[in-house]
Design a protein around this nucleic acid. Sequence first.
DNA 1: ATTAGCACTCGAATCGGCAGAGTGCTAATT
DNA 2: AATTAGCACTCTGCCGATTCGAGTGCTAAT
Lengths: 348, 348
Amino acid sequence: MSEQKENVQLSERKKQILANVVELYIKTGEPVGSKGLINAAGMSVSSATVRNEMNELDSMGFLEQPHTSAGRIPTQEGYRYYVDHLMKTREVDELTKRLIDAGVSSAVGDPEKLIAKSREILANLTKCATVSTAPVGEMTLIRKIEVVPVGVYSVMMVLLTSNGILKSRLCRSDTEITPSVLEKFYGIAKTFIIGKPAVEITPAYIQTLTAAIEGDYFTMLPLLAAVSELADSVGDSRLVLGGSSNLLSFKDYGSGAVALLEFLSKSEPLTDVINSSKGAFDVRIGSENKYKQLESSSVIVSKYSVNGDDTGTISVIGPTRMDYETIIPSIKYMTDIVGRLITQALEE
Amino acid sequence: MSEQKENVQLSERKKQILANVVELYIKTGEPVGSKGLINAAGMSVSSATVRNEMNELDSMGFLEQPHTSAGRIPTQEGYRYYVDHLMKTREVDELTKRLIDAGVSSAVGDPEKLIAKSREILANLTKCATVSTAPVGEMTLIRKIEVVPVGVYSVMMVLLTSNGILKSRLCRSDTEITPSVLEKFYGIAKTFIIGKPAVEITPAYIQTLTAAIEGDYFTMLPLLAAVSELADSVGDSRLVLGGSSNLLSFKDYGSGAVALLEFLSKSEPLTDVINSSKGAFDVRIGSENKYKQLESSSVIVSKYSVNGDDTGTISVIGPTRMDYETIIPSIKYMTDIVGRLITQALEE
DNA sequence: ATTAGCACTCGAATCGGCAGAGTGCTAATT
DNA sequence: AATTAGCACTCTGCCGATTCGAGTGCTAAT
């Protein structure tokens, strides 16, 4: 709607004003007026001057007024400029650091628990919703398959990946699962499945196996089908949402909160939201998210790396009016520590 | 506050009126007036008569008025009387039955999936929140322990119970976990742990074991600690909440919905709520639940039995103004089918 | 370039009045 | 004795008018 926001050069004072409007609005939730801005930011110019500047920021597209005679609030572009250029990228707060360290310490050693814990901590810290995904990537390998007999016709199939993720499923066959059946299955698994990337163990791949198997493969089929299902669910990347009820306390959403929670509770679109982030760290503000349900929310996605390769994510979802300046360092610190601890836990 | 509600005998007409008020109020959410009641229920008496009867039901404590000149709404005792004596206990609706059957069919054979699915289906069907617990009881035994090497110092410990519940945890030791360590561990497990009820495998019990172990048990400790932790988490009964965002759509809760969701998101009190239900089927209305956060909600807890002994639960939580008449048959049908399917899946 | 001053706009809160739904009571009816 | 018609009464929700205050944009002076 206005000129190139990216390359535009703002005067020092405009930057200062924009930053202060954003920060004050984040703090109070009320539109910021010229008068209020001056004494909150301790500026030594008159309100008229500020009004002039604000007016220009307005027509540049960084600020807007909810109605003619109200203060200003940041537009989506305003937040964007703030996050990109104005925000102080400070270190994580000492207290926060302590809280995170103490919180994860109870879960060191177990990736799954660790991730759950990190979600919980971050939800409490940010008062937003958090989403975590397990560390699954293209190179996540099937490390081990274990078949635990449960009955004559059924077994518990357990699959362990190179990232310490374990998936299991009860599997029932029409025919008796004898030790020799199991032995044959282990043979097949060892040759064709163990060590392969989980993403490659598709139903189609299982199909090709049946040709390679000598003798009757009917007895193998239920077992192999279970394996492919499990391998597939590894790729599900185990997305979990937490703290969503936090979002209800933000007056920003008004009655739209219901629709938002509804949206977040479905895992397919949420997966898409998380996966469409670029790079190791990504802040997406308002309609930068392609889903209209998120148009007044921001999503911060931060990736953690395990052994430098496979990656999971920890994300924070909240209103565009979220406290970027403290949330961003927190989530960065959290992903860093989670990545390191999981790597360490999986160390040979 | 008024005379003995339990033993009180209501005239046929009073019963009819109470039932109709409850049902109409459940349907519309609006206080029910004498006029509206007559033409909704097709009664052939005048509104004045109905008013007189309502007045008496009012002073008996079954109905109340939100304000002097409004229609009547049921009190908690009104709902109670309705559920106990007036409600038609009809069979589950044919369509619902189909939906449930179709829904669970995709998860037959895997208890965990089945339970998750049942939660989801029931949440959609009832538009309320649902809670499920896994089938864990006093007699849930440790069936098998599997130790999968992950690295030199770490293993994935997998524990399978007699109910098909599988729990796992990464476990890291300070000392090298050699095959001989594992062999020794399996020996201990076989003798002292396998076949025992999960609830008995406490840290204290592990303590007593260390005395029984010959040679250095330091290498065993991390492994045994992991086992006890897993056994303990079996008793956690794996409570999961679903469909909580459904509750937001009920205007009944108004702004209290936030607090309710907050309450439900914490698992300790929720566990308590579920566990304090008596018998195989229990409806608790409003303040019959001891938590004040539930004073305008009803909780329906239904137990399913696996092999007749261990039991898990499926529950529905919603406003006191919920559609008992259709929800109750649905949840009963659901628990019945879930119990049967799990029993079948675990059959020898 | 900055600022003081002023007219103007718009939302939020307050208030009275009005319409409607529903009640309880009384007196008439069956 | 039970039912009903009729009526006065009460309370809520809604509409419109009014006021109040915060904040703006513009103009003219510094």
